[in-house]
């Protein structure tokens, strides 16, 4: 982390700017809470009533399978196997989503880095690179700004339900996230190796494969694995609409009031999350190439 650098000159202008931004935040805070609490039924009344909380207690008991009469799902072996299969599909969906995202990023991260187009890395500046820069950056912003669930709602119009549309929706959003991060990695690279390669007469591809990728790859992989941890959590949510894996079953069980099955699904979900977190931490250690 960099230490704060003392301001050079126009510190008064800067501090008044800071003040505007900070005042803006305070105003936003007041207006937002005002709207939430007084702009309509906020739910404060129901959240503070005792009846709501006794209902909540009842819900928790039903999750635990107490008092419903039927055998709770977690005592039935076939339920474990069935939900385990769904968890397996969910995991596959998250991996497939990462593959879509990474494949897209691998094809487009170069023009998205500003120092590629302006010749800072030793390449030749050209109009085409500049156009591509804005085009790809725009795509990153669009895909990143739209949540996975909305992409899934749209994609389900074209593709038949299953793992694929969910993975595509997740992949699309994460393409934007990873693309931005990867472009920033390239922008922060040490330019000297590629410049040296250029000076020694390398072609563009040689500069890419011997100058840029070796430097950037560990960072790329680290970001990819971090995003995988996020993706596995979101896979369930996308499954709500794309009808793949645990998400679909979660929603169905909730709407049929099969609450002990919901509990079992949440258990499998948590197991997936923890497993992926551990796996990703291990792979990140491998990716450090030491």
């Amino acid at each position: 982390m960099n230490l704060p650098v003392p301001a050079a000159g126009n510190s008064r202008v800067r501090s008044s700017f800071t003040r505007i931004y900070v005042y803006g935040l305070v105003l936003l805070f007041i207006l937002s809470w005002g709207y939430v609490l007084f702009g309509g039924d906020s739910g404060l009344a129901s959240l503070t009533s005792g009846k709501t909380w006794s209902n909540a207690g009842g819900f928790l008991r039903e999750l635990a399978g107490i008092g419903s009469g039927a055998t709770p799902a977690y005592l039935q072996m076939d339920q474990w196997v069935e939900k385990g299969k769904l968890a397996y599909h969910t995991l596959a969906m998250s991996v497939l989503a990462m593959i879509f995202a990474v494949a897209g990023v691998a094809l487009t991260f170069l023009p998205a880095a500003r120092n590629m187009g302006n010749g800072e890395l030793g390449g030749t500046p050209s109009r085409l690179w500049t156009v591509l820069y804005y085009l790809v950056r725009g795509t990153f912003i669009l895909t990143r700004a739209i949540p996975e669930l909305v992409w899934a709602l749209i994609i389900i119009f074209f593709l038949s339900p299953g793992i694929l549309p969910g993975a595509l929706a997740l992949g699309l959003h994460n393409y934007g996230v990873l693309g931005k991060l990867s472009a920033e990695v390239v922008e922060n690279l040490d330019p000297r190796p590629t410049r040296a390669l250029r000076a020694a007469g390398s072609s563009n591809f040689q500069m890419l494969f011997y100058g840029i990728i070796p430097q950037a790859l560990p960072q790329f992989l680290t970001y990819m694995l971090y995003r995988w941890e996020v993706v596995i959590r979101t896979t369930v949510v996308v499954g709500f609409v794309s009808a793949g894996g645990l998400g679909r079953e979660f929603r169905l069980s909730l709407s049929f009031f099969h609450y002990s099955e919901v509990a079992l699904i949440i258990f499998w979900y948590l197991l997936l999350v923890v497993a992926v977190d551990l796996l990703s931490a291990w792979l990140r250690r491998l990716a450090r190439f030491d």
């Binding site: 309509g40 739910g43 949510v237 929603r251």
Partner: peptide, 23 residues
């Protein structure tokens, strides 16, 4: 470890739908 929408769906089942529950 639990996604916000999963929390939300659970909250809706437990305490009902309201902006504060979503928040």
């Amino acid at each position: 470890s639990i996604h916000e929408l999963v929390w939300a769906v659970l909250f809706v089942s437990a305490v009902g739908l309201s902006p504060l529950a979503a928040i």
